[in-house]
Amino acid sequence: MIDLIRILGSEHIFSIIDFIQKNPGQNASSIASSLNIHTVTVQRALETLAKYSFVDVEEKRGVGRPSRNFSYRGGKLTIDLNDLFSDYDLKNDIIRESGNPDISFSYDVDKETVNAILFGGKKGNKIKLDVKTGRFLWLVPPPDSKGETIENICHEAGVPLIDAIRFCLKMQELDVLEVIR
């Protein structure tokens, strides 16, 4: 939900919604060039709106890469603040690596970031991380250590706290991290 709230608070959201209301079935690139906004900004906004079903997506395949065309659907947004802030309490929880032997990491010592998490060796599944979450994971203490609070690691990695908490919960499900409450 936090991603949707962020998108709704962004500078260009009204012009993007207004444009697809008047011109349904357009892809992000054409919307971006019409509104003179960066394509990535439009793409991110529309994909988030599509995730919460405020926008319909139609995938067209033809010559070249498939095109994702967006049309406005609209709808009602209900925000449960209790649910939204429930995870915030986890900021003082201590985290450390789980030490799962099936998990390895692809990392860059110079940039001090984890590029990807590898499940079951090099031929197994791979989760690529962006720079911020990669940096966060890099700073997570090793297994059997005293651990570190999510807030402290966030502060050092420069990652928004709520994003880090969500990331930790996801990593806990995948047995990459353990959260000690």
Partner: peptide
């Protein structure tokens, strides 16, 4: 302390 778990990620 011995007999602890291993992680391939470097320790900071």
């Amino acid at each position: 302390e011995k007999d602890c778990r291993y992680s391939p990620k470097p320790v900071i």
